[in-house]
């Protein structure tokens, strides 16, 4: 394994990734940047690319970025581990989780 330089970085904020962008579907239109009430995102310096998540820990999970996104499949909401709801199939008893 090639030796990579190890940088000294601070811990990431928690949660760090309230959404996951799919660059295959995201056109970089930045509508999510505009609708987000608290500026979680900034536009990507490279035009046409998904925005950068700059203030993830300020997200209040209002979901408007995902709901108002005009490109289906571009944004997937990524609930933090402690906020992933469960359900149970009434007949089989099988447990599901988001």
């Amino acid at each position: 394994m090639a030796k990579k330089e190890l940088f000294a970085l601070p811990n990431v904020q928690t949660p760090n990734r309230p959404v996951v962008f799919d660059p295959d579907y995201c056109t970089g239109c930045n509508i999510c940047v505009e609708v987000c009430p608290i500026d979680v995102y900034i536009p990507n310096p490279e035009e046409g690319k998904p925005p950068i998540i700059l203030h993830p820990e300020e997200c209040w999970y209002c979901g408007t970025c995902a709901v108002d996104c005009p490109c289906p499949g571009a944004i997937k909401f990524n609930w933090p581990l402690q906020a992933r709801g469960y359900w149970k199939n009434r007949e089989t008893g099988k447990i599901g989780q988001i």
């Binding site: 209002c62 979901g63 995902a66 709901v67 609930w79 149970k88 199939n89 009434r90 007949e91 599901g96």
Partner: peptide, 17 residues
């Protein structure tokens, strides 16, 4: 967005609690 996430994950009000 919660409803959207649950639907995408397969939750179905016809079968699931």
């Amino acid at each position: 967005v919660i409803i959207k996430t649950f639907n995408e994950a397969g939750f179905n009000t016809r079968k699931d609690m």
